[in-house]
């Protein structure tokens, strides 16, 4: 009971602090911007007359997916991890960890609470964007296929965000301060894709790519079939989950090693 209360408490306050630091708000507004701005650009092209009937809906849905997914995927891959990179190093930097570690809080509970807090922030950002943006496209342009639209958010954006944000929080937990955490995040977001190849190649090595090619290109393929061959979304999500577990075990062992030193 106490452990659960601690995890939920950390997650709740972590989310609250991230929201107040404005970074999360800026990313949410950014995601809304990149998904709403195209409405102004394409509203004349996509006249409502051309969207009537099944073919029209399919055509329009593909456009919505392409515009949404390319923008959202890029944000989730390149921006969102930076918001949460210093979730744990910042505690060390400002000195609050000195107090936190004199409470009966176990290292695993601390890591779980911090990761859940970051996930809570990510999911809030996604929910605000999916509802606002979807409603705007539906009302301003025309109705589209909701099942396809929902799929890119639930099966594409959500796992991609949870894997990347969770990995960044856990990996940077061993770093001493915010600056090194941001540098660690740069390595994760920039160097890693360069090392393993940005586009993916259908082998297991692409699982290390934070762009998650198996998800990113899968949903782009639905809009345009001429995209590279990658692992399936299921394998990508499973691989990401295993990476999360490995990172959690590593971070926990490190925290135990550091305990009382």
């Amino acid at each position: 009971m106490i452990v659960l209360s601690q995890i939920v408490g950390i997650a709740f306050y972590e989310f609250r602090m991230h929201w107040r630091r404005r970074g999360l708000l800026v990313v949410t507004l950014g995601m809304l911007g990149v998904t709403l701005l195209p409405i102004m650009l394409v509203r004349n092209e996509l006249s409502s007359d051309s969207l009537l009937g099944a073919e029209g809906v399919q055509y329009f849905t593909q456009n919505v997916i392409r515009i949404h997914w390319a923008a959202v995927g890029a944000v989730l891959f390149a921006v969102m991890p930076f918001i949460f990179a210093d979730a744990i190093p910042r505690d060390r930097q400002i000195g609050v960890s000195e107090v936190l570690h004199t409470t009966p809080l176990r290292p695993l509970s601390y890591l779980a609470g911090k990761t859940l807090g970051a996930w809570l922030g990510t999911v809030t950002c996604l929910i605000l964007t999916v509802i606002t943006s979807g409603a705007a496209w539906w009302i301003v342009i025309a109705p589209f296929d909701l099942s396809v639209y929902s799929a890119i958010w639930i099966s594409g954006a959500l796992p991609m965000a949870l894997i990347n944000v969770g990995l960044v929080v856990l990996i940077t937990s061993v770093l001493p301060n915010s600056r090194t955490a941001v540098l660690g995040c740069v390595a994760f977001v920039v160097l890693l894709p360069i090392l393993v190849g940005v586009e993916g190649n259908g082998t297991l090595i692409e699982l290390l790519n934070p762009l998650r090619p198996g998800l990113f290109f899968y949903y782009l393929q639905q809009a345009s079939p001429s995209q590279p061959q990658t692992l399936s979304p299921e394998v990508t999500i499973l691989g990401g989950t295993l990476q999360l577990i490995a990172a959690a075990v590593g971070a926990w062992l490190w925290a135990r090693f550091r305990d009382g030193r």
Partner: peptide, 13 residues
Amino acid sequence: GYLPQDLGIYPNL
């Protein structure tokens, strides 16, 4: 109960 010399407190809380 512990109060360190350099106590850090979350500024946004």
